[in-house]
Amino acid sequence: MLQIKDLHANINGKEILKGINLTVRPGEVHAIMGPNGSGKSTLSSVLTGNPAYEVTQGSVEFYGKDLLALSPEDRSHEGLFLSFQYPVEIPGVSMVNFMRAAINELRKYRGEEPMSATEFLKLMREKRAIVELDNKLASRSVNEGFSGGEKKRNEIFQMAMLEPRLSILDETDSGLDIDALRIVAEGVNKLKNENNATIVITHYQRLLDYIAPDYVHVLYKGRIVKSGGPELALELEEKGYDWIKKELGEI
């Protein structure tokens, strides 16, 4: 579904991604790990079309379409989802209005009629249960006054609503206590099927105990320097990144 070839990207003229190659197929879970500043969040920003980043080289195909040519909203309509590391607070925009706008724009893109209010509320109720999101949160402004855990649960709730084909979870585990981590991970697992895929960006093995990856990649200095199976994550947990740096001849 996703094919990234030799992807280079800048922010403010500084090159962060220096040639990423990655292929993701339906049903797969990929974990991307790496030290701070290696370009993990940049990769998710570039894939979702954050205008702050400039792609200088390479290509990204998503179900045969040139992903980089699409607007952020059309990438979403095509089935790409990003769970933000830092979900944005939007005072004055209620979760209900926000989600209804998102759902109806998706339906419009697919040539479907807007969802009725009853249907929509029913869907909200159903999907809220997946991440045990309180009804009160759903009636508040988007992320405003949410705790760290609530914000992350809200991200997964939105993912459940939009049913993306490819989800990128950008450090969804950061700032979560054990219970919240379990709820979020279980939510992700419930949404998983053979037709969708997940890219999990994380620093720690901990999340991968809950969301089992098929592949683990190490991103370092803007490149994927090592790929392997789930055992690679365990090895990293044990040995740290110095081991990789040694392999690269840096230490």
């Binding site: 979702t48 079309g49 607007s71 998102a102 998706l106 939009l162």
Partner: peptide, 16 residues
């Protein structure tokens, strides 16, 4: 940008 990643068009997001 956050709203656009949820599929809300730029004009709708601006309106909201």
């Amino acid at each position: 940008f956050y709203m656009r990643t949820r599929g809300i068009s730029e004009s709708e997001a601006r309106m909201l």
